[in-house]
């Protein structure tokens, strides 16, 4: 996915490969500007006017999303894959009730749905996100707290029972306690419904809390993907290691923490070779010339580094 910007062409997501499996929570982490939100938008073919998907395929159960017609795509969105955008809970229409949002959303993707069905489904979903359906559905958005709105948005995303749910920074504007409870709710929903989720965040601690597998993005590519425990206890890519050491927490020794040197790469003029090489303590000659491929380490782990074998 690339964008035309005044300085040239910005490749926000560059030749990226990623699989999402059935019944898994994939945590997608990276710093701002690494392309994680753009990747989520690309999956549903949501393209800004100055952007275009220059190549590649996005296969969902054997069908390429990028070659669907507009009508096919409209029916596909929400029914198969739904997305909760960053800050979506502030995007409710302030003059209509929560239930009307549920109706509108359903009709936009499935005009044949009956009102009774939608009522039934909405109530079910409200209970699933631990909201009282009779109290919440008749409310206007401003009558709900931030945490309630966020849960209502998650319920809305599940109206058409999508197989894959994409959540972009769903917790970032919530206070710590609401965050914790909402995370537990998502874990429960996942256990009950066996949905797959892509959970996008910049916060490593949130990923540690709910992801089964983690993909780490840097400069528009995946640099490492592995099971959650591998990422935190046995990180392979130098960027993953450096990032883990740069995040202070309320536990652990601060003596092991170390700031990461240097700035993030300029997306319009990315460094040649490995995107991380200008900041990497382990760089050698080849790193500035050849871009490393994402290599299979074992059944689930992938890493894109020329030196991952020797650094392990």
């Amino acid at each position: 996915m690339e964008f035309r910007v005044p300085r040239g062409i910005l490749k926000a997501v560059d030749n990226l490969d990623l699989d999402v499996y059935n019944d898994e929570v994939l945590g997608l982490v990276g710093e701002s500007g690494c392309g994680k939100s753009v990747l989520a938008h690309t999956i549903l073919r949501i393209v800004d006017p100055n952007g275009r998907i220059a190549g590649g395929k996005i296969m969902f159960q054997g069908k390429d999303i990028l070659s669907m017609s507009k009508e096919e795509l409209r029916r596909f969105r929400w029914k198969e894959i739904a997305i909760v955008f960053q800050g979506a809970f502030n995007s409710f229409n302030p003059v209509i009730r929560i239930f009307e949002h549920m109706l509108d959303t359903t009709y936009a993707h499935d005009e044949k749905a009956s009102k009774e069905e939608i009522v039934k489904r909405s109530k079910e979903l409200m209970r699933m996100v631990r909201l009282d359906p009779d109290a919440v559905l008749v409310r206007y958005p401003h009558e709900l707290s931030g945490g309630m709105k966020q849960r209502a948005v998650a319920a809305m995303a599940m109206l058409l029972d999508p197989k894959l749910l994409i959540l972009d920074e769903p917790f970032s504007a919530l206070d710590v306690l609401t965050q914790k409870f909402f995370m537990k709710t998502l874990v429960d929903i996942r256990r009950e419904t066996r949905k797959s989720m892509i959970f996008i965040t910049h916060d490593l601690a949130q990923v540690a809390e709910i992801a089964d597998r983690v993909a780490v993005m840097y400069g528009g590519v995946i640099v490492e993907a592995a099971g959650v425990e591998d990422i935190f206890y046995k990180p392979r890519h130098p960027y993953t290691r450096a990032l883990l050491k740069a995040v202070p927490s309320i536990v652990g020794s601060i003596d092991e923490l170390k700031p990461l040197p240097g700035p993030l790469p300029d997306p319009v003029n990315p460094p040649p070779g490995c995107e991380f090489h200008p900041r990497c303590p382990h760089r050698i000659d080849i790193c500035s010339r050849v871009r490393p491929k994402l290599e299979q380490v074992d059944d689930v782990s992938l890493v894109a580094c020329h030196r991952w074998r020797e650094l392990n």
Binding site: V176, L177, Q179, K180, M183, D203, L204, A205, Q206, V207, A208, E209, V228, E229, F232, L244, V247, S249, I250, V251, G252
Partner: peptide, 13 residues
């Protein structure tokens, strides 16, 4: 607050 805050350690958190 201290028990609610997520920490970057999957087993612990």
């Amino acid at each position: 607050m201290m028990t609610a805050i997520s920490v970057p350690d999957p087993k612990l958190t």
